[in-house]
Write a protein that binds this DNA or RNA. Sequence first.
DNA 1: TCATACCGGGG
DNA 2: GTGTACGGTATGA
Length: 788
Amino acid sequence: MSGPPAVPDHPTPDEFLWGWDPTPGIVSVWADAGGLATVWRRRPGVEGAVREEARFRPWLLLDRLDDLAHLGDRLRPAAAGGTGITWRELAGHGALRFLVSAPDARTLKAAILHGARQRLGSRISSLRDLGAESVLSLPPEEQYLVATGRNYFRDLSFDDLRRLQFDLETQGLDPATDRIFMVAVRVPSGVVHLLEAEAISDAGEAGLIRRLCAVIRDADPDVIENHNLHGFDLPFLVRRASLLGVPLDLGRIGPPGLRQRAAFRGAPDESGRRGPRRVRYVVPGRELIDTMDAVWRYDFATRELPGHGLKAVARHLGIAAPDRELIRGDQVFQVYTTDPARVRRYAGADVEEVSALARLLGGAAFALARMAPRRYERLADAGAATGVIDPLLVRAYYRAGAALPAHDEGRQAPHAGAALYLFAAGVARRVVKADVASLYPSLMRAFRIGPSRDYLGAMIAMVDQLVELRLGAKASARAAPPGSAERHTHEATSAAMKLVVNSAYGYLAAGGGLTRFADLDAANEVTRRGREMLALICRELASRGVTLLEADTDGVYFSVPHDWAEADERRVVSEVAALLPPLVQLEFEGRYQAMLSHEPKNYALLGYDGTLVLKGVAFRSSRAEPYGRAFLRRAIASLLAGDVQGVRDAFVSTVDALRRREVTTHDVSSRVRLTKSPDRYQAIREHRREAMYEALLAHGRDDWRAGDKIRVYRAPDGWRVATEDDDPRDYHVEHYVRALRDNYGSRLARAFNGEGFAAVFADPQQPSLFETDFAAMTPTLTLLPPGG
DNA sequence: TCATACCGGGG
DNA sequence: GTGTACGGTATGA
């Protein structure tokens, strides 16, 4: 490859990121193969959206013109100003170098297929059969947005959108048999309508669906939201409406009925049911947003949510009302028959929470839609690499008039990942954490590592710009009043930029089957630089007199000598930071009284304010029994305070409490999930008995459902079911005594030598030959050999 | 015991 | 036309 080829136009990095057409206020786009784009725009504070129609020329990219040669002189160069099918050869090195367009995508497609069949045979039935290496064809809306340089939401803030939430209440989960009996609808003004079927009958349900459509048409929202909208409410509604023969007239134009698009997550495809083929519903003029997607994306970054259900998330994020009505899913309809007011409160709370959740977490997708040439609803459920970066790159090359590289499946190069070292195990004091902010994007910028085939340098230019812009967005967010729309928009912009920047590396590593510019060599170079950087940081820290504890990918824990002050800690971090390339920033992240280092990625930290944080599966197993969990926290708190006597006391008192049966049944029970239904278990019971189910049956229960969670505990003769209102304390004491030492005590073992551990966790009822002076013992730190 | 298959959510 | 990921549990060999 020679140097970068000349390209006819010179898009700016600004245009890579933001497009170039300043048209403000676009809230939805719908385009068809005939080259008609319908655009809805609104002005802040004005209730109605304006509908505009625009003509565009459908276009696609080909690797050759051969298949259009049969058109003869009906195929004309774009420069000659033809109105039929035209072509233009793009500059640069990419395989997809012919931009062809026509007034109608269908005639263009038909012409290509006609030629392709002559060349390759009749098995070619769609453009897809030509392969991604030969053709790039975008959905009509994206063709329009790429070609015009327009984007959604310019000059709008999230609160300028007209958003509507609706939530179905049904008799059950199966639309073949269960009816919709209530729908809660929150319209953009904030008013909540509770629509109810006048009777539990075909006519009653059909009337309910008609009223739902009428409320939505009246409110005329830009956006329709719910939690699991695409996984439950829409497919359920579509199915019921079809069974009842009610038209679903929800769009802003066109005939009634929802359209479908292929999606990875969504409802199962009704026709073919092999593989992960799913569909999502689409409607002209409105964006259908599932808050579960936003929750998913949020949890991917934070990994702190207890679950992804609406109620759990709302509670966790502090948007659930304190008196929030809760009803178990399988009881909703039954409660409705006896206490309908309760179900109304419940359904109303659902839509209120969805609205708050969408506002809290939906901003990132909103901000992305101001950059990438895709519909807002697509950006809300797309992965960052294929869903955001790829469209941005395609637009950058289109704008430059530059040929696009085709997907390259490439080789499956072995990929070396991040570095992980455990330098020491046991208890360390005066611990400091230092880490590199956004390590991988920083390395890409610092060493100019980008996809080798990105000859415009668009990806690095975008990462550079996003990182810089994000600093500005963060500052603007801080400057804006808390809770204001302005602050919200800036925070969302910052979050969206972080998402894109952090996925740039993932884009490289994803492999050519997924992303157009994938480059495993570049990805390997990023991780290699990362390992090198981490090793350098560790080496330089160690040479300044600290003790290294654990290093993982982009951060390192170390302990400092006893006579160092915080200023000394900060000084070594800045000294080492100064040795790194300018764009790689090592930061002082935190300091702790003490750390228990157990295994890689498994440790406990005691802050100077006394807070104890446990990290890793060894310390936070969901199956852990409450008594063990409580013991572990108490013992580790003592251990990190250097109080071995306290650890011994925690163990002895827990053992004593078990033997005196002072521990409740609940506290020795653990939560398990039932996977077999009663029927299924009965079917295999003679063949193979399973303790959990036997316990349930012995408990007199045969009405459970697959997926239910129960608590069980060990009795001397097997497993039993623990219930809320019964506390028989007939558990197998010695089983739990053993578990206390083997499952929980063992997590402190690295802080002792063998004899010390044996003494601390010795059975209090079996006096040893000599007394141990626990108060004189100190937890130890063991330096591990490199590579261990 | 280890490998793999499947789940998450919605009423 | 799409293209997730991650940690847990259940299962089967």
